[in-house]
Write a protein that binds this DNA or RNA. Structure first.
Length: 591
DNA sequence: GAGGGGGCGGTTTTT
DNA sequence: CCGCCCCCTC
C-alpha cells in the first residue's frame, strides 16, 4: 500500500500519519482532513508497521464519527482482515467493564441508564427525602454528572460543595449511587469514571490493557472531560504511543464537562510531544473561512488556527433579515427551490431543537422533503422505553427503574408479562421475545389511540422490532440500544439516496459539510443563547459553536435573523446576533 | 387501577 | 405553545 495510499495526502498530513510512536498532538482545523489523517494512520499502522489490529485503539465521541472511521478503515485494509477497536469512549468502557465486572464490583449483566432512567431515580430520591419539587431534578442530575466527569465521588463532592443547592446535591448524590449499585446499573458517566477507578485501583488490570494497546488514537480531544482525559493517560501509560487530534476552536461541549484545556495541557503531561498543525482547509471558500475567522478571532482563551485554502474568493456570505420566524423559514425554502442544486447539498442549522418546528412546517407546505436529525431521540421515546423496560427486567432483575416503569404501564399487563416471562427467557432471539411480550400484554393496543401520534408510536415499536431482528441475543441488543443511537426512518431513506434537505442543530452538524448552509435564528439571546450570555467563558463557547456552524459550508453561507420571534408562546423583539455583526461588510451581501 | 382534564412551569447543546 | 405532573373521575 505504502506509496499509493500516502500519495492521497498532502505533505503535512503525511508527516502526521507517519509519526506513529511517542505522544503526538495534531492540531487540525475545520475541514483540514482530520478524519482522513486518523483513518490513514490506522491503515498505516496495520499495513506498513504490521501492527496487529487488536493492539490498536481508536476512540471518538459520537457513533456517527466512529461509524464513518470504521467504514473508511475497512476500505483501506485487505479484505477479511480484522478491524481494530474503533468506537466511542462509552462503548469502549462498557465493553471493558463487562469483561472485568466482577473485579469492578457489579455483575456482568448491569443495565446502562440513560437520562430518563437517571431522572426517574433522582425523582424517587427527592420524594423519599421529601425535598419536593423545589429543586429541579434535571439540575441536580446535571450537578451529579458534572461531578462524575471530574472524578468526584459523593464524599469528594460534599467536601467541595457549599451553598443551598450544593447541599441538596450532596444529599442526593450518595443515595443515587447507592441505588444504582442496588439496581446493578451504571449511568453514562459511570461507564467512564468506574473504568478509571478500576484501572487506578488494580494495576494488574491496568497493565493488561496498557500492554495490549500499543497505539492509541483519540479524536476530538478538545472535547474530553477530566475522566476521559485520565483514561487516555492511563491507557497510554506503558507504550506511550498516543496520537490525539483536536482543535480548541471547535470545543463545544463545555456544558457537559468537556474542558478544552486538556488539549492545551497535553504537551505538559507527556514528554517530547510532537505537534502537527493542519491548517490547509479543503472544504470551504476563502470568503467563508474569512467570515469564520472574523467571528472566532474574538476569543481570547485559546489558540486560534488560521486556516487557508487554494479556493480563493467565492460567493459572498448572504444575510437576510426577516420579520418573523415564519418569513425566515419561507426565505430559506425559496432559496432552495430557486436553486438547481440537489436537495442533499443543503443544510439548515439552528441553535435549539425547538426551532425545527417552523422549518418542518415550511418544508411540508412547500413540498420539500427533509431529514430531521436529532430531536427526540428514538430510544428516549416513551413507547420504546416501555418495551425496553420489559426486556431489561428479564436480563437484570434488580433493575428497579425498569421494574417501576412496567408497573406503571399497568398492573394487569405486568401479571400477564410475568406469566410468560419464564417461557420467554430461554435464549430466544430478541425479536421473538419482544413479539411475545407485545402479544401477551397487548401493548400496541394501549398506545394506538387512533390518532396520528398513536400510529407513529406503533410505527416506532415496529422499527424497534426491525432493529432487534439484527441481534442474536438479548444482552447484545440491549447494549447496542443503550450506546448507539438508532437511525430514523428519514435518515435511512436519505442514506439510501432519496433526496432531501437536512435540518439539525449546530451541535449535531459538527464534523459534517454541505455545499450550502443556512444558519438561522442569528439573534442575541438565541445564538448566543440567553443562558450563555453572561459568563465570558460561556460566550466563548457560543462563539466556537458559531464558528463550527459557519465552517460547515463549502460554497455558500446564509445567515438569517428575525425582528421578532415567538418564544414560549410570546412574541419577542429580537436584535441581530453579535456573531453576524462581527463579520466585516466586504464579505457580505444583503438580500 | 386506568385514563383523561386542567393547571403549572420551562426551553441549549448529547454520549 | 408544548409537555409534564397532579388530581379527579369512571
Amino acid at each position: 500500500m505504502a506509496p499509493s495510499i500516502l500519495a492521497n495526502l498532502d505533505s503535512d498530513q503525511q508527516e502526521a500519519v507517519k509519526k506513529t510512536d511517542g505522544p503526538n498532538l495534531i492540531l487540525a482545523g475545520a475541514g483540514s482532513g482530520k478524519t482522513r489523517v486518523l483513518t490513514y494512520k490506522v491503515a498505516y499502522l496495520v499495513l506498513e508497521k504490521k501492527t496487529p489490529a487488536q493492539n490498536i485503539l481508536m476512540v471518538t465521541f459520537t457513533n456517527k464519527a466512529a461509524g464513518e472511521m470504521k467504514e473508511r478503515v475497512f476500505k483501506y485494509l485487505d479484505k477479511g482482515s480484522e478491524l481494530p477497536f474503533m468506537g466511542t469512549f462509552h462503548s469502549f468502557c462498557a465493553r471493558l467493564l463487562r469483561v472485568e465486572s466482577e473485579r469492578a464490583g457489579f455483575s456482568k449483566n448491569f443495565s446502562i441508564y440513560d437520562e430518563t432512567d437517571q431522572l426517574d431515580l433522582v425523582k424517587e430520591i427527592l420524594s423519599d427525602l421529601q425535598i419536593g419539587s423545589k429543586s429541579r431534578p434535571q439540575a441536580i442530575l446535571a450537578a451529579i454528572s458534572q461531578a462524575k466527569g471530574e472524578l468526584l465521588g459523593p464524599d469528594d463532592y460534599k467536601k467541595l460543595s457549599f451553598g443551598y443547592f450544593a447541599q441538596i446535591v450532596s444529599e442526593v448524590y450518595p443515595r443515587y449511587q447507592k441505588l444504582l449499585l442496588k439496581n446493578n446499573a451504571l449511568d453514562f458517566d459511570d461507564l467512564i469514571s468506574e473504568t478509571v477507578k478500576l484501572l487506578k485501583q488494580n494495576s494488574d488490570i491496568a497493565q493488561k490493557y496498557q500492554k495490549r494497546f500499543c497505539y492509541i488514537l483519540v479524536d476530538e480531544y478538545q472535547d474530553v472531560n477530566t475522566a476521559q482525559y485520565e483514561l487516555t493517560k492511563i491507557l497510554a501509560g506503558f507504550w506511550g504511543n498516543i496520537t490525539v487530534v483536536g482543535d480548541a476552536c471547535q470545543a463545544i461541549y463545555g456544558f457537559r464537562g468537556a474542558d478544552f484545556r486538556n488539549i492545551l495541557n497535553f504537551e505538559k503531561d507527556f514528554e517530547n510531544v510532537t505537534v502537527f498543525n493542519l491548517t490547509r482547509n479543503y472544504r470551504s471558500t476563502q470568503a467563508i473561512l474569512d467570515g469564520a475567522f472574523s467571528v472566532i478571532s474574538q476569543n481570547e482563551s485559546h489558540p486560534i488556527l488560521k486556516l487557508w485554502t487554494k479556493n480563493k474568493g467565492g460567493e459572498l456570505l448572504e444575510i437576510f433579515e426577516a420579520e418573523n420566524e415564519v418569513e425566515e423559514a419561507g426565505f430559506v425554502l425559496t432559496q432552495i427551490k430557486e436553486s438547481y442544486s440537489p436537495l442533499s447539498s443543503f443544510a439548515v442549522l439552528y441553535r435549539t431543537n425547538a426551532q425545527s418546528r417552523v422549518l418542518e412546517e415550511a418544508c411540508l407546505e412547500s413540498g420539500i422533503p427533509y431529514v430531521l436529525v436529532g430531536g427526540t431521540r428514538f430510544y428516549q421515546r416513551k413507547e420504546i422505553k416501555d418495551v425496553l423496560s420489559y426486556l431489561r427486567v428479564i436480563t437484570n432483575p434488580k433493575d428497579s427503574v425498569s421494574q417501576k416503569r412496567i408497573e406503571k404501564i399497568g398492573k394487569g399487563r405486568l401479571k400477564k408479562f410475568e406469566k410468560v416471562k419464564e417461557e420467554i427467557e430461554r435464549n430466544r432471539k430478541p425479536q421473538e421475545i419482544i413479539e411475545n411480550i407485545l402479544k401477551e400484554t397487548e401493548y400496541l393496543f394501549l398506545i394506538d389511540d387512533g390518532t396520528e401520534k398513536g400510529k407513529s408510536r406503533v410505527e416506532n415499536v415496529k422499527e424497534l422490532l426491525s432493529v432487534a431482528s439484527k441481534f442474536e441475543n438479548l444482552s447484545d441488543f440491549l447494549e447496542n440500544v443503550s450506546l448507539v443511537e438508532a437511525e430514523s426512518e428519514a435518515q435511512k431513506s436519505a442514506s439510501e439516496g432519496k433526496e432531501a434537505i437536512t435540518l439539525m442543530t449546530v451541535h449535531a452538524a459538527k464534523g459534517l459539510e454541505f455545499e450550502t448552509v443556512f444558519l438561522v435564528g442569528m439573534e442575541e439571546g438565541l445564538f448566543p443563547h440567553l443562558r450563555s450570555s453572561f459568563d465570558p467563558a460561556d460566550l466563548e463557547e457560543e462563539r466556537r459553536l458559531a464558528y463550527v456552524g459557519i465552517t460547515r459550508a463549502k460554497v455558500k453561507l446564509y445567515l438569517t435573523y428575525v425582528r421578532n420571534r415567538l418564544f414560549l408562546g410570546r412574541r419577542q423583539t429580537c436584535l441581530v446576533s453579535r456573531f453576524v455583526t462581527d463579520i466585516p461588510d466586504h464579505l457580505i451581501s444583503k438580500c
